[in-house]
Design a binder for these strands. Sequence first.
DNA 1: AATGAATGAGCCTTCATTCAT
DNA 2: TATGAATGAAGGCTCATTCAT
Lengths: 194, 194, 194, 194
Amino acid sequence: MSEKSDSKRKFIIEKATEVFASKGFRSVTMKDIVEACQISRGGLYLYYSSTEEIFKEVCQAADEADADQKDISEFLSNAKASELLLWFIKEQKKAILKRKLSLTAAKYEYAFYKKQNGDSKEAKSEFDTAVKVLTNILIRGNDDGEFDCMDPDATALSMMYAIEGMKACGASFGLSEKKVDGELLYLMSQFVES
Amino acid sequence: MSEKSDSKRKFIIEKATEVFASKGFRSVTMKDIVEACQISRGGLYLYYSSTEEIFKEVCQAADEADADQKDISEFLSNAKASELLLWFIKEQKKAILKRKLSLTAAKYEYAFYKKQNGDSKEAKSEFDTAVKVLTNILIRGNDDGEFDCMDPDATALSMMYAIEGMKACGASFGLSEKKVDGELLYLMSQFVES
Amino acid sequence: MSEKSDSKRKFIIEKATEVFASKGFRSVTMKDIVEACQISRGGLYLYYSSTEEIFKEVCQAADEADADQKDISEFLSNAKASELLLWFIKEQKKAILKRKLSLTAAKYEYAFYKKQNGDSKEAKSEFDTAVKVLTNILIRGNDDGEFDCMDPDATALSMMYAIEGMKACGASFGLSEKKVDGELLYLMSQFVES
Amino acid sequence: MSEKSDSKRKFIIEKATEVFASKGFRSVTMKDIVEACQISRGGLYLYYSSTEEIFKEVCQAADEADADQKDISEFLSNAKASELLLWFIKEQKKAILKRKLSLTAAKYEYAFYKKQNGDSKEAKSEFDTAVKVLTNILIRGNDDGEFDCMDPDATALSMMYAIEGMKACGASFGLSEKKVDGELLYLMSQFVES
DNA sequence: AATGAATGAGCCTTCATTCAT
DNA sequence: TATGAATGAAGGCTCATTCAT
């Protein structure tokens, strides 16, 4: 089943991404996806057998697409802390703003859905990873004398909460790029000598 | 007639609140509410004719309940800024933590649902109000020499983003009281001389 | 659910009996029953939620209807053995012949279906009961000097196998009343002095 | 072409036999057979185009396999009646007991299915043949002085009903070899001087 | 006011059957 | 010959909504 036709699977995931981005998670039906893909009901079942299965692959594909944009590991070890921070902030900004295809709302719904049913690990990891990355950046910035951040752990966590808050606000009532920029600048101003 | 029916409406809203808190918005059915209220299907339709209508009243009732706890207007004019901040922070903490009956997830879902359908005002107002209230508190604190906050507008907005982020995190993967306290203290530390 | 409307349940069981009698067990769908009853799909689900559930009640109702025809307990204690045998044989004959509404085929299918899935008790009891009843009749007949049956247990069992065989033949390719009579007479001739 | 396809047909029938033996007739799908044969969906359709067509060949193959075991015609004319009876009884016993690969249940289902649709000849012939064979055996036994059977026709028919009954019981709730032996001995005791 | 039986639309899932390769 | 992806019909189940009582 996994080799059926990778290009078809990819096609379905692409179309499904649009569907989840525009309808969230719970209210998406197999029929919605069938229609988005213009294939038959039975045809979809050859590849996937539930919306949850599709959603997981949609998220995974989206994460991979984000990761592809930069080979982080090498970048992380060579760049200056201020460059890293800029990159990090830009990534977050993209995540907050990407209107058209944002899976944020669907991800919240899915996380809530899993929480109800006992599972609650999946959603957490992405957030925690971001906090760790940012903490490391702040520590290196302190070491290099670029930043002046008293408590990198607390600062990183707090920034990520603010960023998560912007994602949520963006998903529920929209947020202009200007507002996002203003907030990100404000957040950075607390430890960057401008 | 109106008295009796009012108490019945109130009863329905109470039960429905529990349902929305535990199932979110979109996946709640009239049947769920009928069962929670132990009334007949037809009976419910005498009072409300859709889950959306019920959800709006549920949110309104929840907001009023929060507001009732304190007569703010008077309180705002008499209290010291540091007291006001403490009250504000406590309210937010309650909003973040109230696990059992949190409508956060349902509200996000609803906001997203309305955004799709064109409406996107409703959700925004609550957030904006909170920002304004906090801004005023900060300004007063500056005037009284209690706080040292360079940019009250930006600070208030940033704090609310972080708070919104905590709500979202709490709704999707849970947040301990200790973590919330830590973050709130951190946020305040930026302008309060401890 | 059990008191919903007994007359409606009874109506459904009556119609379903016809369906099972004409289509067997496995190939009967909820749709078949819905159409036989001329009710809506959802309507049927108010009373029953699977064909198996309906089939069990159909069988139970059929058994009760058979039992109703005679108050056996009293009859058993007062009648002469030859009368009892006649009654028993007549009942079996009815069971073999009742063409239009015979559940025999459906019962075989169901028994086979349960056997595949591990259960295999349900079907056996009816057969065993009949063997016991017949054995008792033969024993009494011997005691009264009406019959001359050397081994009542073996005879009763063998007769029931033959009767079961006739049921099976009747269900699969039909059996005339004359043939059934001939066979039953032959079976009795082995221990009844004509 | 024909050789290759013949072996393939044979292969399909073998696998299909297992499927019908374990699932009956009506609930067997082309998919079941495709999977049992490990061939493609389209591939199966090159040889057979319905489960009914396959089932007919399955039955025919099974009958031929049974027949192959002994060249009856010659055997019938040379053997002693008591030997023939023993052979006949052993064959029947095998038919009753062959658990794993018994087509009994499927045959009943099929016979019933055809009866609904008007056809009802197919199933009858096998039974009638057996009755005739047994009748002949009994007559010869009488002639040779080995048996003492007053009415060979009636006796043969009655025995076959009992045997058919055992098949049905075996298919629906199982029957031990001991029980089958006991019954067969009982049936024979009625005309064999032990 | 209140009930709850009844309806029918809508989504889920499986399968026989076809067809391009 | 043989494959297996694709289709669409059919049946299962749930739910919003109505209506006679």
